[in-house]
Design a protein around this nucleic acid. Structure first.
Lengths: 218, 218
DNA sequence: ATATATTTTTAGGATATCCTAAAAACGTTC
DNA sequence: GAACGTTTTTAGGATATCCTAAAAATATAT
C-alpha cells in the first residue's frame, strides 16, 4: 500500500464509493489527475480486490476497501485532533498536514496518539473517528437540507474543506451552534436559519448540504 | 525533494560526508541498495548541487547538502522528543517512527511541535537538535574512547541505533550517568568504567566510540 | 435513430526508483 | 609492473506513477 493508492481509496470513499459506483470523471476532478491515470489505478486496485469495477461505469469499494478507507479516516482525524488541540492549528488549517501524516503512521503510533488525546470521538469538524478495527460508530446526523421547519437543531459536523470552513467562519456558523429553520426556498434555493437570539443567516442549498445536524433532544 | 533523496543525504551525513569523501561501498552497506542505485542517486544529487563527486572515490555534501541534512536531523529529533516524552515510547523505539514522520513534516508543523515541547535542546539519546536555519548549536562532547583516566565524566549522547540502545540497557548505562575511567586496554581493547558507587562496567572499544561524554565541571 | 458530445480505455512515453550482469577503473601484491 | 581482486560505472530492465493523443464505448439531442 502506497500513499498514492491510499489517497485514491480515500477519494473513492469520499465521493460515496462505499455504497454507489463512482465514475472516472469524478475521480479525475477530485484527484486532479488524467483520465488515463484513473483507469490505470483502477486496474491496480481491482487486482488487489479493494474495488469492484463495471467497465465504462465506474468503481465501488469492496468491504476490504471500505475497511481501509475507515482506517485512513481514523488516522487522519486523530492527527487533526492533535494538530488542533495540542499544536494550536486553526479549524481550517489541520487538513493539509493530517493528509501527509496519515500515510506514515504505524498502528502503534496512532493508538498511542489516541491515548494521549484521551480517545477523542470526533475530529475538529465534528467528523466521527472510526474504530480501530475499521468499523464506524453510530451517528444520527443528517444534512441541514433535510431539517424540518420549526424544530431546533444543532450543527454536528461540517465538510473538511478549507474554503468551505472559511466561508462558515465568515457566516459565523460554528460547530455546536443551535438554530431553527425559518425558510427554505424551493428548487434547491437558499435556506434561512435563525439563532436563539433572533439573528438570521441565509445560505445556499449546496452549502447547507455540507453541514450535518441533529435535532436537539430536550 | 523526495523521502528517498532525503534518506540518501542523511546517510551521507551520518557517514561523515560533511567533512570527508564517502565511498559508494559505504552507502551500499548503509542503505542496503545496489551499487548501481548509489551511482544513479549520486548523479541526481550532483545535478542538484547537494553533493560533490570525485569519480571512483565517492561523494561529499556541499554546504546546501549539509544544511538539508541538519534540517532533517532537526525534524527527526524533535519528533523523537515528542514520541518519547508525550507518547511514552521507549528510548530505543523512537527511531523508526521518527524516520517516517520527518519526511512529511512541514516547517510550520515542526515549529509548532517545537513550541509544544518547550523548545527542547536534545533528543532522547542526547543528540543536539539543530537550529531552524540548519546551523548546529555548539557542543563540547567527545567519544568515550578519548577520556583520560581518573577525571570524572558524564554520558551526554549515545548512538541512535536500536540494537546498540538495547545493549546499553543490558549494561545499565544511561544518559547522564557519571563515571570515571579505571582501565583502557591497548590496541583498541576494552574500556572499564566505574560508577561513583564502585560498580565496574567493561565495554568494547567500538561500543565506547558510540558513546559521547563530557567531563564533569565542578 | 443518427449525429454529436462526453467519457473511458488503450497506446505509447516520461521520470524516479530499484535491480542484475558486464565492463571499466582502481588498488594491491608479488 | 602484470595479475588479481575490489569497487564503480554502464547497460539494459522492471515497476509505480504520471502524462498526451487516439480509439472505442456510451450518452444526448434533435
Amino acid at each position: 500500500m502506497t500513499p498514492n493508492k491510499e489517497n485514491f481509496i480515500k477519494a473513492i470513499y469520499e465521493l460515496g464509493g462505499d455504497h454507489s459506483v463512482i465514475s472516472n470523471k469524478k475521480l479525475v476532478n477530485n484527484l486532479s489527475i488524467s483520465a488515463a491515470s484513473v483507469t490505470e489505478m483502477n486496474a491496480r486496485l481491482l487486482k488487489e480486490k479493494l474495488i469492484s469495477h463495471v467497465p465504462y461505469r465506474g468503481v465501488k469499494l469492496t468491504s476490504s476497501g471500505i475497511r481501509i478507507a475507515h482506517q485512513l479516516k481514523r488516522k487522519h482525524r486523530i492527527w487533526e485532533v492533535f494538530l488542533f488541540e495540542k499544536l494550536g492549528y486553526d479549524w481550517n488549517e489541520v487538513h493539509a498536514d493530517a493528509d501527509l501524516l496519515e500515510h506514515v503512521s504505524s498502528d502503534l503510533l496512532i493508538e498511542r496518539l489516541n491515548d494521549f488525546l484521551d480517545e477523542p470521538k470526533f475530529d475538529p469538524h465534528g467528523g466521527v473517528i472510526p474504530n480501530k478495527d475499521g468499523s464506524l460508530p453510530e451517528t444520527s446526523t443528517f444534512p441541514l437540507t433535510d431539517v424540518g421547519t420549526g424544530k431546533p437543531f444543532k450543527i454536528k459536523e461540517v465538510d473538511d474543506d478549507k474554503e468551505f470552513l472559511n466561508y462558515l467562519l465568515e457566516k459565523d456558523i460554528q460547530l455546536g451552534d443551535r438554530y431553527t429553520l425559518t425558510d427554505v426556498e424551493p428548487f434547491d434555493g437558499p435556506i434561512t436559519l435563525e439563532t436563539p437570539e433572533g439573528r438570521q443567516i441565509t445560505i445556499g442549498h449546496k452549502a447547507a448540504f455540507k453541514i450535518l445536524v441533529d435535532y436537539v433532544t430536550e
